[in-house]
Computed example of a mutant assay.
Amino acid sequence: MEITVEKIAMIRENHNPKNVNLNLDIDWSVEYTNTDQRNVNYNIVLKSAEYLNLSFKVEGLVRLDIFEEFLQQECSQIVFHHACTMLMDMISLTRQTNYELLKEDTSSAVNLNAAF
């Protein structure tokens, strides 16, 4: 079995919380289409509203080997695990960061507050 990611979408309505230890209660659902064929499409949606209001969606494809049976429960566990890992990586990438730049002609510093 080969699982690939085709699209990722994250919708965040608020900025990152300042708490370093972020506990997310995640509601999730996986939807499969074409489960009777060798290529199975999946959509997984992760939602959290308590500490960080966001929706995260991953669309992808499961390719089955010849005569391989599609095991939905096992596949869902794998897809969920990888979607959670991608979500945490995306939160880290989009966190708010402070940068200090030094000007060449003076010793004064310029502070930048950026969110990526």
Results as ranks from 00 to 15, higher is better:
28 W>Q: 07
29 S>I: 12
29 S>Y: 10
30 V>H: 05
30 V>P: 00
30 V>D: 06
31 E>K: 12
32 Y>S: 06
33 T>V: 12
33 T>F: 06
33 T>I: 11
33 T>G: 04
34 N>D: 11
34 N>Q: 10
35 T>R: 12
36 D>I: 03
36 D>A: 09
37 Q>F: 08
37 Q>N: 09
38 R>E: 11
38 R>Y: 10
39 N>K: 13
40 V>F: 05
41 N>I: 02
42 Y>F: 12
43 N>Y: 08
44 I>K: 04
44 I>Y: 06
44 I>L: 09
45 V>I: 15
48 S>L: 00
49 A>Q: 15
50 E>P: 04
51 Y>C: 14
52 L>V: 08
54 L>Q: 08
55 S>W: 01
56 F>K: 02
58 V>M: 07
58 V>D: 06
59 E>Y: 01
59 E>R: 12
59 E>P: 00
60 G>D: 09
60 G>Q: 09
60 G>I: 10
61 L>Y: 02
64 L>E: 06
64 L>I: 03
65 D>R: 08
66 I>R: 13
66 I>P: 06
69 E>N: 13
71 L>N: 13
71 L>S: 14
72 Q>M: 07
73 Q>G: 04
73 Q>C: 02
73 Q>R: 08
74 E>H: 05
74 E>G: 08
75 C>T: 14
76 S>Q: 10
76 S>D: 13
76 S>L: 04
76 S>G: 09
77 Q>R: 08
78 I>W: 05
79 V>W: 00
79 V>R: 03
80 F>C: 07
80 F>W: 00
80 F>G: 06
81 H>K: 15
81 H>E: 15
81 H>M: 07
82 H>G: 03
85 T>R: 10
85 T>N: 08
87 L>P: 02
88 M>W: 07
89 D>A: 10
89 D>C: 03
89 D>E: 15
91 I>E: 01
92 S>R: 13
92 S>Q: 13
92 S>F: 12
93 L>H: 05
94 T>Y: 06
95 R>L: 11
97 T>P: 00
99 Y>A: 09
99 Y>R: 05
103 K>R: 11
103 K>C: 03
104 E>L: 12
105 D>S: 12
105 D>G: 10
106 T>F: 12
